[in-house]
């Protein structure tokens, strides 16, 4: 799934997050940007229906393997690690957030398959982010 994120945009967002003084403001802006510009109703529904690997989607679209992005991303993730964990480690929270932003897909998100998919994806994403950030 291509989200159309340019390397330059990812880089500038990471730099902004590293330089920012208020963590809270950065997190709010990030959530706003993620749900306003990156994730659309269609691609979220597509991810659930096709059971896409969200870790892979994140890795490819955010250019996390790029030598330009890697040092910045590691530093930003370390700075915001508590905030990242608070969301990724709490599937209930991710589920509520998705329901709030995309209420039209509540039946997909709350189905047995949807919940199982979300559980697996959060676990995978957390494992990936932990080893990416701290190794």
């Amino acid at each position: 799934m291509a989200l159309g994120l340019r390397l330059e945009d990812v880089k500038s967002h990471l730099e902004k997050a590293i330089r920012a003084r208020s963590k809270r403001k950065v997190v709010q802006e990030f959530v706003k940007w993620l749900f306003g510009n990156v994730l659309t109703s269609e691609n979220v529904a597509e991810a659930f229906q096709l059971k896409l690997d969200l870790t892979e989607v994140l890795r490819v679209n955010c250019h996390l393997d790029s030598p330009v992005i890697q040092p910045l991303a590691k530093l930003a993730f370390r700075l915001y690690w508590r905030e990242i964990e608070d969301v990724v480690c709490n599937v209930d929270r991710v589920h509520s957030l998705l329901l709030k932003v995309f209420p039209e897909h509540s039946s997909i998100f709350s189905s047995k398959d949807g919940v199982e998919y979300l559980n697996v994806q959060c676990q995978k994403l957390y494992d990936y982010l932990y080893s990416y950030t701290w190794s």
Binding site: W81, E85, V88, C89, N90, V91, D92, H95, K112, V115, E116, L118, N119, C122, Q123, Y126, Y130, W134
Partner: peptide, 13 residues
């Protein structure tokens, strides 16, 4: 590195 947390999953029932 902080201690790894356990992901709190959601019941699918």
């Amino acid at each position: 590195p902080p201690r790894k947390r356990t992901v709190k999953t959601m019941s699918s029932e």
